[in-house]
């Protein structure tokens, strides 16, 4: 069986959905709504999913991304609303995200605590802190929408930024020793340690990276409207983890790549508009997404069983 069978089957499923839309709902391919959907729904999620891929390949998980996404968006938005330049506000949000990621990473890699528990705690803490501080009030960024560009330029910028994260990272995971370290640590941290790799450092850095990516994604999402929603990012962790798992990354670490994750994210993101275009009730959306995730997990389970025997 082909090494990339899993990725290819996701890509095939995506192709089937896109082909079905072309036949039954050609309206899907109008440029404006499609561009808005990609910039609004896909691009920021993809950036977070890139970080999530590394974290899961490293055999950890981060469920606090939704909360740090909201915090970075609001803080970046507040800077913009006070007239701070984009060139300052954007890096500030990224650094803030990286700091929150480093906090998770220090607890997980430094103290050896389980990542699901640590990030569950930070997810709740950060979300509630923001709720207390902002009371749900939107942040008006007004003229800073689209980073001050016009709509078309802003939308293309989002796509370029997402690709500017995805492409180098996809290259780096395959062509940099650092990328291979992540896979080695995720597969067998003790073997990696014996080989002179520092598993704890690698784990820590993946959390810093997902934090920085989350900060970037939060700003990408924030500037798509004149108001930043402090409840944004609710459920983001589920959407990214779903995309990563559907894309063929093994939840037990060490396997998968970003191309599969891209296909998985596009597949999951296309289900909802597809249902609207095909006139199917929204009641089916979650059920279909759940079925896709289940299928992916079962496929991985069968594969790892086969490997063991």
């Amino acid at each position: 069986m082909n090494r990339y069978f899993r990725e290819l089957s996701v890509a095939a499923a995506l192709a089937v959905v896109l082909a079905a839309l072309a036949v039954f709902a050609p309206a899907f391919y109008q440029p404006q709504p499609l561009l808005t959907l990609i910039t609004g729904q896909v691009a920021p999620t993809l950036v977070v999913a890139c970080g999530m891929t590394l974290v899961i390949v490293c055999r950890e998980i981060d469920i606090s991304v939704g909360s740090s996404f909201a915090i970075c968006g609001v803080c970046g938005g507040l800077l913009l609303s006070h007239g701070v330049a984009v060139a300052v506000a954007l890096p500030a949000a990224i650094v803030l995200g990286a700091i929150m990621g480093a906090f998770n990473g220090a607890l997980i890699a430094g103290l050896g605590l389980p990542s699901i528990v640590v990030t569950l705690a930070t997810m709740v803490t950060w979300r509630e802190a923001l709720r207390w501080l902002r009371q749900g009030v939107y942040v008006n960024i007004g003229g800073a929408q689209w980073f001050g560009l016009d709509q078309a330029a802003g939308q293309w910028t989002m796509i370029v930024v997402a690709l500017a994260i995805l492409l180098p990272l996809a290259w780096a995971t395959k062509h940099l020793a650092a990328g291979r370290f992540v896979y080695a640590v995720g597969t067998d941290a003790e073997a990696a340690r014996l080989a002179g790799i520092r598993p704890r450092l690698v784990t820590f850095l993946t959390f810093v990276l997902i934090g920085a990516f989350t900060g970037l994604a939060a700003m990408m999402a924030a500037v798509q409207s004149p108001q930043v929603d402090p409840t944004a990012g609710t459920g983001l962790e589920l959407r990214t983890i779903a995309a990563v798992v559907v894309g063929g990354v093994s939840i037990s670490g060490g396997r998968g790549n970003l191309w599969g994750v891209l296909a998985g994210l596009l597949l999951l993101s296309s289900i909802n508009p597809a249902l609207t275009y095909l006139g199917v009730s929204a009641y089916w959306e979650k059920a279909i997404q759940g079925a896709i995730i289940l299928l992916a997990v079962v496929a991985d389970g069968l594969r790892s069983r086969k490997q063991k025997h």
Partner: peptide, 21 residues
């Protein structure tokens, strides 16, 4: 009749799709 999961950006996506569909 579509849900937005109380999320502004999802509401935006839903509205975009609704107008085009």
């Amino acid at each position: 009749f579509r849900p937005c999961d109380d999320d502004k950006s999802k509401a935006q996506a839903e509205a975009t799709t609704l107008m085009s569909a």
